[in-house]
Design a protein around this nucleic acid. Structure first.
Lengths: 154, 154
DNA sequence: GCATACAAAACGAATGTTCGTTCTTTTTAA
DNA sequence: TTAAAAAGAACGAACATTCGTTTTGTATGC
């Protein structure tokens, strides 16, 4: 809360004019991440583009504080059903979107395979985000190239 | 702390006979995870085995509470330098170990490529762990097969 | 064999602090 | 002049931690 006040340049009392509770702030934060994800997902017509955007986000210096925030949100979701449900819904949307893109690229893939690829992509994205959150000096290097080549092969 | 007491079947006072503080408990927990990871890493002579063990762990029903705990530890590490340093050290060890295995399999890979593969594997592992922590009903399906085939191609 | 003495272990209520929230007051702006 | 916005002190609940007491287990005396 102290951090929220500092970031918003508002006193505790003022913050509570805009949000009912801390939990509703966290929900709004998670909601914001969700819609942002949906926004860039809609710009992707193939998995190569997806990988590009993911790695671009991960390398954005100003996005780094967001990574730390996301880890806090994940932890909060573990013991806050409302947040957990929100994350599960947005993950389901992301999963479907990615699976569709995966299937469009090679229609002979089964739905299950497409979904597995999508799940792995999400895992890579969040996993790398965690690494960057815990150690900002991490360099991703040729991760994007490697990822894209593997996606072409499968 | 309440959860720790319940799990240990000990009163708060008794817990503090074994640990100096909550933080030292978290450190011990993280330390335990580290040595456990080192243990199964030493049993792996190729990446295929690594993938097998990772997915076996992820599918173990009794390991699921550990996933939730890990997410809490990650979040705590974000604002606890001691924990962050511990995680960074153990990640470095894991990274080197996996990179060595990756290079042993195909020596023509550059060190950077091997390290990138290792980093991606760690990302997949923690990413899937996060998914399972937030939604225990997640089914991994043919994730292992797919992962191993992609590793063979690259 | 039983009672006594002692130390280690455990308990759980009490403590002080932190944190989310509220409330009264002051400032801003229309 | 008035309503909206912001401030920040104050409140209460939750939390990590401590401490005086009780229990348990074990060695020692008779």
């Amino acid at each position: 809360m102290k951090d929220v006040c500092r970031q918003a340049k508002l006193s505790p009392g003022a913050v509570y004019l805009y949000f009912r509770s801390k939990e509703s702030i966290l929900q709004a934060l998670a909601e914001g991440g969700r819609s942002q994800t949906a926004a860039w997902l809609s710009q992707c017509k193939d998995l190569s583009r997806v990988v590009d955007l993911i790695l671009q986000q991960l390398n954005l210096p100003e996005a780094q504080p967001v990574f730390k925030l996301d880890v806090q949100l994940w932890a909060e979701a573990i013991h806050t059903p409302k947040l957990a449900a929100l994350f599960q819904r947005s993950e389901a949307v992301l999963l479907d979107g990615l699976a569709q893109i995966a299937k469009r690229a090679s229609p002979k893939r089964t739905d299950q395979q497409a979904k597995t690829i999508a799940r792995l992509l999400i895992a890579v994205m969040t996993g790398l985000e965690l690494q960057k959150a815990m150690n900002p000096t991490v360099e991703l290097g040729p991760t994007g190239v490697l990822l894209k080549s593997t996606l072409r092969e499968v």
